[in-house]
Amino acid sequence: MHPDLSGTQVALVDLLDRLLAGGVVLSGDLIISIAGVDLVRVSLRALITSTEHELR
């Protein structure tokens, strides 16, 4: 991987696409908590609400 991305601010929505729907998913007794599908819905709702708020 090249280091190009580290210096620039990536779009939050692109980041959440990957961090909430991608990545290695681990489950089991070892784990206290993990972001799930519900989380995607929750966070996107929060994002949309905040965007609408800004537009108002």
Binding site: R18, L20, G23, V24, V25, L26, I31, S33, I34, A35
Partner: peptide, 9 residues
């Protein structure tokens, strides 16, 4: 291999 957000042990 990135792990999903908020995976906590």
């Amino acid at each position: 291999a990135p792990v999903r957000l908020t995976t906590i042990f």
